[in-house]
């Protein structure tokens, strides 16, 4: 590995920014099969537990005057509900549980991934590609079910001059199929970039002279990462809403 050579040359300054993303079996050291319990599995399970704790246990008292956790759950509910309603309109509201599940999973996984020594599940393309493909396939199938062949009107820009329309159709088609790619890489890339940068700064801390600066930088990056964790979940969700709107109302 190239970094190891670097580390050997500079003496003591060793960077392994990507090691935190290695998927390892929880028990033993064997190969990773389909059903092996790995650290990724653990943190996926913790994400599920966190979502359940917030949305089910937190609201179990059904209080009119909410407790702290209940009001956080209600806040998340209202936030996503308003987003779905604003972007997709009234007829998109029945897909709200689906979008809410995506949002809660992504936001919880992002925040849990920020805990020290944790494993950021959303930094893996395996996870985000599945999420993005789930959205892409659902939206495409839904578009054809709701609008039939009329869904192809999404690519036929009727407001453009007739001569330009075939060209635009090709561009629209390409951009439509790039959607899941950018959708997934944006999320994983942001999370991975933040974690890797923090790790690089942490690597600098090995030198006593710059370690205070490195700690300050890590703290600043951590603050930024908290922001990014939420914003990326928000962006992922609102893009899902936008795609859903395209499927429900394909006219431009």
């Amino acid at each position: 590995m190239a970094t190891e050579a670097n580390g050997a040359e500079t003496g003591g300054l060793v960077f392994h920014p990507m090691d935190q993303f290695i998927v390892k079996p929880l028990f033993g050291d064997g190969p990773i099969g389909m059903f092996t319990l790995t650290n990724a599995t653990l943190w996926l399970a913790l994400t599920v537990l966190a979502v359940v704790a917030l949305m089910v246990l937190g609201t179990s008292r059904r209080a009119i005057v909410p407790t702290r956790s209940q009001s956080v759950g209600e806040l998340a509910y209202g936030f996503v509900y308003k987003m779905v309603e604003d972007v997709t309109g009234k007829d998109g509201v029945k897909y709200f549980p689906y979008i809410m599940s995506l949002f809660m999973f992504v936001v919880m996984a992002n925040f849990l991934g920020l805990l020290p020594m944790s494993f950021a599940t959303t930094s893996h393309f395996a996870v985000t590609v599945v999420l993005a493909l789930a959205v892409f396939l659902t939206v495409t199938v839904l578009g054809f079910i709701k609008n039939g062949v009329g869904f192809l009107g999404l690519f036929w820009v009727s407001s453009a001059p007739l001569a330009l329309r075939p060209v635009l159709a090709i561009i629209e088609l390409i951009s439509y199929f790039v959607r899941p790619v950018s959708h997934s890489i944006r999320l994983a890339g942001n999370v991975m970039a933040g974690h890797a940068v923090i790790k690089v700064f942490a690597g600098f801390a090995a030198l006593a002279v710059i370690s205070p600066l490195s700690i300050v930088a890590i703290t600043a990056m951590y603050g930024l990462e908290i922001l990014v964790a939420f914003i990326q979940a928000y962006v992922f969700t609102i893009l899902t809403c936008v795609y859903l709107k395209d499927a429900l109302h394909p006219g431009h």
Binding site: A2, S182, I185, R186, G189, A193, V235, I238, L239, V242
Partner: peptide, 24 residues
């Protein structure tokens, strides 16, 4: 605003990804 920022940022993330691929 956030959608616009997300689209602009995604392209930066792509270049970052290319850098990572070249590195690792």
């Amino acid at each position: 605003l956030f959608i616009g920022i997300a689209f602009a940022e995604a392209l930066g993330i792509f270049s970052f990804l290319v850098a990572l691929l070249l590195m690792f």
